[in-house]
Design a protein around this nucleic acid. Structure first.
Lengths: 148, 148
DNA sequence: TATTGTTATACTCTATAACTATA
DNA sequence: TATAGTTATAGAGTATAACAATA
């Protein structure tokens, strides 16, 4: 038998290891987690205003200014005037930025393969179901704490 | 069917939600994640030298100096001369610190109950097995990148 | 010589508040 | 009046390097 606290500890161990793997990736590419997050988001949505990025990333607009500053400097994104709103700036991936995000996705899928290859279909299904339940319950807890 | 990338995404979602829950906890108690980590570690081992804490937390000794400064200020730990090594300092939990760590453990177990209560035993077993495999493979990846 | 912890310095992420330009 | 982004300021976590005291 596996007790609930033991199961949570295993989940937290996997969380910590995923974090370590992400740190390794960041060091290899010289990009912080916050900047990678912004690039990933930009890859999902395409060119976006800084205010939209701030909302999507859950940080302040001021923070996005700094992150975009860095990513412009490293050549991953560009800042351009917004086509219709002269107050706003539109952030876009450069060609190098696009290539980087494409590689990011490839490595993401590659990691998934390494982690789950060869597992019995029943284990995969149970894992998916279990994670779904946990995600739902966790989401409710977080939302409950945030809302009322 | 659940593809490997989809399964990884679910795992990452749970990871993100666990992070959000921890941030909520941190805000409620006015303690940062790094300081909580140090308190948790101190609860596991008992009084420890700063160098040992640095090794256990995977940060530099300089960093531990700052974290302990803060926790001394908040009354959770004390710094005292080491009994046998006059170069070293020994960090211990205060009574308030002990009480806090006890409460931390209680809330940890309570969260585990909320997340996993009522799940079929077969799901729990599969979840435990699946997480074990993932932890093992991830550990190998991280060690491989760090070692050679 | 090696280790323990600190001072000095610097970088990143984060936040709030005040301000400019525009809507 | 409200929104988009910046400047100004601040704090936390992290790191390296140089140094004093001790082993």
């Amino acid at each position: 038998m596996t007790s609930a606290p033991e199961l949570l500890d295993r989940l937290l161990l996997v969380t910590a290891l995923l974090g370590a793997d992400q740190e390794r990736f960041q060091r290899e590419h010289g990009l912080s987690g916050a900047r990678l997050h912004l690039l990933w988001q930009l890859g999902l949505t395409g060119p976006a205003r800084q205010a939209d990025l701030a909302a999507a990333l859950g940080v302040t607009p001021r923070n996005v200014t700094g992150l975009v500053d860095g990513l412009v400097g490293s050549g991953h994104v560009t800042r351009a005037p917004h086509p219709t709103d002269r107050r706003a700036l539109r952030v876009s991936l450069t060609d190098a930025g696009e290539a980087f995000v494409t590689d990011l996705r490839r490595q993401h899928d590659e990691l998934a393969g390494q982690l789950f290859a060869g597992l019995p279909a029943t284990t995969v299904a149970a894992l998916a179901d279990g994670l779904d339940v946990v995600a739902e319950r966790l989401g409710a807890l977080v939302a409950e704490a945030a809302g009322p």
